[in-house]
Simulated assay, not measured.
Amino acid sequence: MNEAELYEARLELIDFCIDVFWDVPEESFVERLLGEGIETPEESVNEPLDEGFALLREWRGENRDRSTEAVREELNREYTDLFVGPRPPVLPHETYYREDADFLGEGLADVEASYEAAGWNPPDDYPEEADFIAVELAFLRYLVERQRTGAEEAFGFERVFLDEHLLEWTDAFVEETREEADPGLFLAGALIFQGLVRFEDELVAQMVPGGF
C-alpha cells in the first residue's frame, strides 16, 4: 500500500465510523452497506478491526436481500434503544467514561481546547456536544486531511489528541457496547472504531518519536 492508498484507507475508516454513529444511519449509507459500496480488507490489521470487519461481513450477509427501508427502520430502533433512550445503556461521549471529568461538564472544555489549538470548529450539522464520538472522529478526519496535504504539525496534534482523549475512553466505550448491543452494525462499528484508534496510535508513533 503506497502513501496515497494509506491516506485513503484511513479516511474511509473514519468516514465509516462517522456514518455509523453520528445519527440514525442515512438511507444512502444503508444502501452502500447492502450493496457493493463497502469493502473490508482480507488481511489481518489488528484484533478489534479484524473482529469488527468479520461482524460487518456477517451482518451484511444476513441483510443483503432485505429492503433498504426495512433495514434502516431496524437500525433506527437499535440506534435509539442503544444511544438515545430514554435512559440509553450506552452513551458515546468521552466525558461519560472519564473518571477525571464530569459527564458533559468541565471535561468538555479540554476537548474543545484541543480543537481550538488545531484551528478546527465542529461542523454545524453535528448537534451533539464536543466530546460526542462523531465529533471527535470528525476532528480526527480533519487532522488526517491536513497530514495528507503536507501539514506535518498535524501529526503532533493527533498525537496529543490520541493520548489525552481518544485512547482514554475508547476501550471502555467498546466494552459497554459489547455488553449492551446485539451482534450487528453498531457493535461492528464500535470495534472498528477501537481498531482505528489503535491503528492511528501505532502509525502516529512512527511520525512523532517519543510522543508528547
Rank of each mutant, 00 (worst) to 15 (best):
L11W: 11
V208T: 01
V30S: 05
G61Q: 06
L185S: 03
E179M: 10
E158N: 11
I38Y: 05
D201V: 04
E175D: 14
V20F: 02
D171S: 14
E168C: 10
G37Y: 01
E69K: 11
E176W: 08
E168A: 13
Y142F: 15
E12Q: 09
L33D: 03
C17A: 14
D163E: 15
D65K: 12
L203R: 12
E106L: 10
A101L: 00
A113C: 04
E116T: 13
R77I: 13
L11V: 11
E74L: 12
V84F: 09
V84N: 09
A172F: 12
V197F: 01
T177V: 15
L167H: 10
D100W: 10
F155W: 15
L82A: 09
A188M: 06
G107Q: 10
T170S: 14
I38A: 07
L11R: 13
A9W: 12
L49T: 10
P123C: 06
P127M: 02
E42R: 10
Q194M: 04
L196P: 05
G189E: 08
A172T: 13
V160L: 14
Y97N: 06
G184C: 04
N63Q: 11
L191I: 08
E8S: 14
V30R: 05
P123F: 02
R32E: 12
F193P: 01
G210A: 11
L185A: 04
E99N: 13
E145S: 09
G107L: 07
P48M: 04
A118P: 00
F53E: 11
R198D: 12
L11A: 04
G150T: 07
E200I: 03
R146H: 04
R66W: 12
A4R: 14
E176N: 08
D15K: 03
